[in-house]
């Protein structure tokens, strides 16, 4: 492999190479501007960044003072860091585990239904929430939880109890957020797993029937092992995003992720967004995103290395 590479480098440019480079140029420029410049911009986490009017961004970055780890110190001293880290990681863990179990379980169940037509109808209906943006979903939630008019409070009132300020009650939010995540994503994930289930060679099942395996044994010894690769791939992809939260879910559904429910719903992303909208110095918030980017990169590589150790073919890198 290494030898091949060396050979490639020594080869001189052909007309082909020039043409292909021209074809790739616009996208490369895009990557440079929208992916690699922000990576370089991460160093503002170590700077006392100030935007000077009329000067370019690069000039500002290079000419602002070094702050060392001051931004990070400040961040660690504030209590927020612990809360947002805990929320981000715990929510993601629950999402990964619960999402996996539910969507794989439902995919297997739906593949066992007798009627193909009914199964198609269920799939289509359950796929629907995936196509809604979180803004729209926030309206749905509001219709149920609104303090004055919401369905739940109306029912409480009719039942003789006091209405509850749902958007100010932290205890219920973990359940709401988990439910909404499951509501929006399960149908979609189910369909992904279902498409791999339908790709399983049917002769495997036939052989199992001949050997006298019942349906449960078939699921356990054929379907699940065949799904292993897809499950691992989805798992690595999700673990890699464990420091990122689904911003729309946490921000829109909770209507801003601040106030009295901050401790229950704030994640790294909502925290950064809210800081960006307020007057918090940019250096401090960029310390959070720096940490997020690095941590995320490390988790992906670790998850991949782990998988590689267990099962070489399943690793994605």
């Amino acid at each position: 492999m290494a030898k091949e590479k060396k050979k490639r480098i020594r080869r001189s440019w052909t007309k082909n190479d020039v043409e292909l480079t021209l074809l790739a140029l616009p996208t490369t420029v895009w990557y440079l501007l929208f992916c690699f410049l922000p990576m370089f911009g991460l160093i503002i986490a170590f700077k006392n960044y100030r935007a000077v009017g009329g000067k370019s961004f690069l000039y500002n970055v290079l000419h602002s003072e070094w702050a060392g780890f001051k931004n990070f110190e400040f961040l660690i001293k504030s209590n927020d860091l612990f809360v947002i880290l805990r929320n981000t990681i715990l929510y993601n863990l629950v999402f990964i585990v619960l999402g996996l179990v539910l969507s794989v379980g439902m995919a297997i169940m739906i593949s066992l239904l007798h009627s193909r037509r009914k199964s198609k109808v269920y799939q289509t209906l359950m796929f629907f929430p995936y196509f809604m943006s979180w803004v729209v979903v926030a309206y749905f939630v509001d219709a149920f939880l609104n303090v004055d008019n919401g369905m739940v409070n109306t029912m409480l009132r009719n039942g003789g109890s006091d209405p509850v300020q749902w958007y100010m009650t932290p205890e219920v939010w973990p359940f709401i957020l988990i439910f909404m995540y499951i509501w929006k994503n399960t149908g979609y994930n189910m369909v992904i797993y279902l498409s791999s289930i339908s790709g399983i060679d049917s002769t495997l099942y036939e052989a199992a029937v001949v050997d006298g395996a019942n349906k449960r044994q078939q699921v356990w010894y054929i379907t699940l092992p065949c799904l292993k690769n897809v499950i691992i791939m989805m798992f690595i992809l999700n673990i890699g995003k464990i420091f990122y939260s689904d911003f729309g879910l946490f921000f829109q559904i909770s209507q801003g992720a601040k106030g009295s429910i901050f401790n229950a719903v704030a994640t790294i992303d909502t925290y950064v967004y809210n800081a960006l909208q307020s007057n918090t110095p940019i250096g401090m918030t960029s310390a959070v995103t720096f940490f997020q980017s690095v941590a995320c990169c490390i988790t992906i590589l670790l998850a991949n290395a782990l998988v590689k150790k267990i099962d070489k073919d399943s690793a994605i890198i």
Partner: peptide
Amino acid sequence: IPMIFNGGMIASYVVNTQM
């Protein structure tokens, strides 16, 4: 590389608005 590492919200925001 962008699949496993990225600049995050703040850096992108600063680049997009100021540069």
